[in-house]
């Protein structure tokens, strides 16, 4: 089943800009689905609003294109409604962690079996290049014409602190690792967070003179390192890739079934 069977071909070529990392995330994600051999009827993809969230239009699953920042809340309803479904929630960095931050931390806290993919291009692309909570201090954007004074937070640490039981990070350059991580994230029973550093050459790249998509992907190679590597010790500025958290924790739908059991017995 080549990945062509998983896309809605009639809507291609897709709308993402030339060199945008989101297409690579889509490809890696579909290869993960292929590896898992999941049936298309069992997958629900729930996305928010933004460049990354248009991904739902391109995949041949049950797709729910919701509201900016609210994908995880919708997804919680879908999952609790039919726990057998595999729920994938791709979001942008602003979508997941700015307006959607409250739902992100609480969905993690509940540890409901949902796979969240944070497609972090550190910008609001759809609306034209404004800085996002993940842009980072000092960058430039259409709303940070001088320099950005907003500090970003570490998505992996935030997800871990909030209670996600699977947390990983990789980049669009490391597409093999991305496919493998997404495969493990979907298999994991519990809330999985996969942060993907994905390039936005049109706005982030141009506004910050980083160059083309190719240049940005080269930076992903140079600026990141496997978790706990020697390089990281020598150069703490390197961003670590890999799986940070992978532990078995009670899953929300399973826990709720215990309540139903108790209620039905005593009733």
């Amino acid at each position: 089943m080549p990945i062509k069977d998983y896309i809605r071909e009639r809507y291609f070529p897709h709308l993402w800009c030339s060199g945008c990392g989101h297409g690579i995330v889509l490809g890696s994600f579909l290869r993960a689905i292929q590896q898992l051999g999941l049936s298309k009827n069992e997958i629900v993809m729930v996305s928010g609003i933004g460049c990354s969230s248009r991904i739902t239009g391109y995949v041949d699953f049950h797709t729910l294109h919701t509201l900016h920042g609210r994908a995880l809340a919708f997804a919680t309803g879908v999952k609790m409604g039919l726990p057998e479904l595999n729920i994938i929630v791709p979001m942008g960095d602003g979508d997941a962690l700015a307006i959607g931050g409250n739902h992100f931390i609480h969905t993690a806290r509940r540890n409901i079996d949902i796979t969240a993919i944070v497609m972090n291009n550190r910008i609001y692309g759809m609306t034209g290049g404004q800085f996002s909570p993940l842009s980072g201090y000092g960058i430039k954007a259409t709303t940070a014409p001088y320099f950005n004074i907003d500090h970003d937070f570490d998505v992996v640490e935030l997800a871990t602190a909030a209670g996600a039981s699977f947390v990983a990070r990789t980049t669009t350059y490391h597409e093999k690792q991305l496919t493998n991580i997404i495969t493990k994230a979907i298999q994991h029973v519990g809330f999985s967070v996969v942060e993907v550093l994905t390039q936005c050459p049109t706005y982030f790249g141009r506004k910050n003179d980083i160059g083309s998509a190719v240049d940005m992907m080269k930076l992903y190679k140079e600026k990141t390192t496997p978790r706990g590597s020697k390089a990281k010790k020598e150069n703490p500025d390197l961003i670590e890739r890999g799986i940070f958290v992978q532990k078995e924790m009670p899953e929300y739908c399973n826990e709720y079934n215990k309540i139903i059991e108790k209620a039905m017995k005593g009733h």
Partner: peptide, 9 residues
């Protein structure tokens, strides 16, 4: 695998 446009097979 790295093509953003899924154009290569």
């Amino acid at each position: 695998n790295r093509c953003p446009d899924l154009a290569i097979e």
